[in-house]
C-alpha cells in the first residue's frame, strides 16, 4: 500500500483555554485513513467531531499530536483538502461559476476545471445563476463543486446535508457516492445521522464526548449501492445505535434529567 495521500493522525489532543482552566475537546485520537477511503465520523453534538475536521482542514492550528497528509504535517489550509460546511456558504455576490472557481483565481486551467465540476455536481445550465436563485440542495452542490475544483486528495464534509429536507438529503447522499466513485478522493464525512454514515462509509468512527475520543470503529463491508432496508444494513446500524443508547447508560444517567 502506498503512503501517498494517506492521512495519519497520532496522539491528537486539543483543548480550549477557559476561565475555569482547560476544556478538553479531543483526546488521544489515533486514525489512519487510506487514500480513496470513505470514512464517516458520528457523534453527538459537542463531541469534537467538527473540531477534528477543522484540524484536518488546517483551520485549527493550535493542537498537540501529529496530523500528516501524505507524510507531511498539516500546518494550514491547502488546495489538497476540500471543505464543505453545513451551510453552502456561497459568496452572494458571485455567480455559481464564480463561486466554484473561487480558489483557482489566476490559474490557466480554471475555466476547464470549473466547467468539469459544475457538470460533475449536475449544475450545468446554472453557471450564471446567483446563490439566492438556487434551492438548498443546489447551493450545496455548488459548494461541493467548489471544494472539489482544486482536485483535492481529501474531501472534508462537515454535516453537509444537515440543513436539507429528508428527500433532498437522500438524493445528495447518492450524489456524493457517485462523485466519490468518479473522483476517488478520500472522503471524511462528519455527521450525526447514523443511517447516513452507514449508507456511505467504508468505516464508521464513533466518537464519545467530553473529551472527544474514539469509542469504536465499525467496518461496513457491504457492497454499494446499499439497501437501507436490508438485514445486514440494519444490523450494522443497530450496532452503532447501541453504542450511543446502551442499556447501562440508560440505567445510569450521567446526570439527572
Amino acid at each position: 500500500m502506498s503512503v501517498q495521500g494517506r492521512l495519519e493522525i497520532q496522539g491528537l489532543r486539543k483543548y480550549f483555554a477557559t476561565d475555569d482552566g482547560e476544556l478538553s475537546v479531543l483526546d488521544g485520537i489515533n486514525l489512519s485513513i487510506a487514500p480513496g477511503e470513505f470514512l464517516s465520523i458520528v457523534g453527538g453534538s459537542g463531541c469534537g467531531k467538527s473540531t477534528l475536521l477543522r484540524i484536518i482542514a488546517g483551520l485549527e492550528r493550535d493542537f498537540q499530536g501529529s496530523v500528516r497528509l501524505g507524510g507531511s504535517p498539516i500546518t494550514g489550509p491547502g488546495l489538497d483538502r476540500g471543505y464543505v460546511f453545513q451551510e453552502p456558504r456561497l459568496f452572494p455576490w458571485l455567480t455559481v461559476e464564480g463561486n466554484v472557481g473561487f480558489g483557482l483565481e489566476g490559474r490557466s486551467d480554471r475555466e476547464e476545471l470549473v466547467r468539469q465540476h459544475i457538470d460533475l455536481v449536475g449544475l450545468k445550465g446554472f453557471e450564471r445563476g446567483f446563490p439566492h436563485q438556487l434551492s438548498g440542495g443546489m447551493a450545496q452542490r455548488a459548494a461541493i463543486a467548489r471544494a472539489l475544483v482544486g482536485l483535492p486528495q481529501v474531501l472534508l464534509l462537515d454535516e453537509p446535508f444537515g440543513a436539507l429536507d429528508a428527500l433532498t438529503r437522500i438524493r445528495m447522499q447518492q450524489e456524493v457516492l457517485r462523485i466519490w466513485e468518479a473522483e476517488r478522493t478520500t472522503v471524511i464525512l462528519v455527521t450525526h445521522d447514523i443511517d447516513e454514515a452507514v449508507y456511505l462509509a467504508d468505516r464508521v468512527v464513533i466518537l464519545s464526548p467530553r473529551p472527544g475520543s474514539i469509542r469504536r470503529i465499525v467496518n461496513v463491508d457491504l457492497p454499494r449501492p446499499r439497501d437501507r432496508a436490508s438485514h445486514d444494513f440494519t444490523q450494522i446500524r443497530q450496532r452503532i445505535y447501541s453504542e450511543f443508547f446502551s442499556r447501562e447508560e440508560a440505567l445510569q444517567p450521567a446526570y439527572a434529567i
Binding site: A57, L59, G76, P77, G78, L79, Y83, F85, E87, R89, F91, F102, G103
Partner: peptide
Amino acid sequence: RKLVEVGLIYR
C-alpha cells in the same frame, strides 16, 4: 465570519 472562513480555506 463564516464567509471569511471560506476565504481562509482557500489560503
